[in-house]
Simulated assay, not measured.
Amino acid sequence: IADMPGEFWAYEMLGIYYVEAGETDRAAQIVEQFMEQVRTGPSFLKAQLLLARIHYRKQNLDKALELADEILQENPADAAAHRLKGGILLLRGDFQGAITEYRAVLRQDPQNIQASLYIARAHLLDGEMSLAENTYKKILEMHPNEQRAHFGLVEVYRRKGETTAAKRQLEMVLEVNPDDTETLMRLGDMALSMQDTEAAHEYFNRLSALHPDSGHYNYYKEGMVKLLEGKDAEAASLFEKSLQVDPDFIPALNQLINMLVKEKRLEKAFQRCRDQIARSPDNPRYYVLLGKLYMMKDDHDGARKAFEEGLEIDPSSPDVLLSLAKLAKLSGSLDEAIARYQSLMEKYPKNLGVALV
């Protein structure tokens, strides 16, 4: 940069380096430094696009959108700017606006699978199931082995209550890639939801063979099958084994606590949760679980104390912050609840659960 202050590529490389290092403010300063020297031309537009992406990475969506619009005003055919704007609008819930932007990308590049997938996703999120289904099917006509399109159809069919059709999509992926971990996991979970324990055993055994080092997960899934079969003692033993392998694996502790609560053994549930906290004291989600047990006793002070202990461990934990917001709402402190939810939305704009609450 010192030798060639007018060459964008050097600023670009350094800016990308800072982005990857997590120093987005410094990255933005580097790009702005170039833009102050070169105020027009193709290199300026490239710098503007990189700056927009940096603001997008920082979750400063207003500024990212403003920059994308400036680029498109100068060059309406800029596919990268349309793609970025589509992503921003998708995050904001403007699904039709996002579709318009991704269609502009396809006009420049008709074979762009990613743009087609985003269009299908936007239709899905907007509740347009038929349009989403048709878009995913068109993608598969051109690219029969596009796994993301199969997974998209799985979600469409599940929302429509067509479990058999959803299962068939997963089986089609498995026919091409028999050892695909994510597909085996989805089929195993689907078998559990359909109470098909024999199929669940099959899929989870295949996962265990593929990932023998993932003992905590394998024990947990086998425990879920035993739970479905009504073999609670065997299930509990497997969940305990899961936690022995990985003391921080919260799904296993969740199941143990749920089993005790269903048996109306609340004090035993408290003790089991505290035991796990003693084994793994730096896991903020365990304090969330403890706080929820206090809430079952209508002990809001105890719940708040547990949540705040979790917050001391990880001040940015979305689970802890969400639990504190829910507690404030339940306690009637609506102003505090709204403030906490708004703070969460600023920190985690992609968290749809927070947005829904």
Rank of each mutant, 00 (worst) to 15 (best):
L174H: 12
N145D: 09
N145S: 13
N134Y: 05
Q169K: 10
L106R: 08
M142P: 01
D196F: 05
P212F: 01
Q108Y: 02
L125A: 11
L170E: 03
M142W: 00
L124T: 04
Q96P: 10
S214A: 15
K137Q: 13
G127T: 15
T183G: 10
N112T: 03
N112M: 04
E133N: 10
T183P: 11
P110F: 02
N145V: 09
L131E: 13
E198M: 11
T100R: 14
D109Y: 06
A149C: 05
F151Y: 12
G86K: 06
T181V: 15
A104I: 09
A166E: 00
E141F: 01
S208D: 06
G97S: 07
D213Y: 10
H123K: 07
R186K: 15
N134A: 13
Y136N: 05
D189Q: 13
R83A: 11
R103F: 01
E198I: 15
E171R: 15
L124A: 04
N112H: 07
H123Q: 09
E202Y: 09
D213H: 11
L91F: 01
H123C: 08
E141V: 12
L153P: 11
P178F: 01
R158W: 00
S208Y: 03
L184N: 09
G127F: 04
T164P: 01
H123I: 01
A166M: 04
Q169F: 04
H216M: 01
G86C: 08
E162P: 12
Q195F: 10
L124K: 03
T181F: 03
R121G: 04
E141T: 14
D94H: 08
E133W: 01
F151S: 05
L192Q: 06
T183L: 00
I88L: 10
E171W: 07
G97C: 02
T183I: 11
F204M: 07
N205A: 13
Y102T: 00
L90G: 02
R206N: 04
E162T: 11
L106A: 07
K85E: 02
A98P: 11
M142I: 07
E182T: 15
S193H: 10
Q111T: 12
E128F: 00
H201K: 14
L124H: 05
P144D: 00
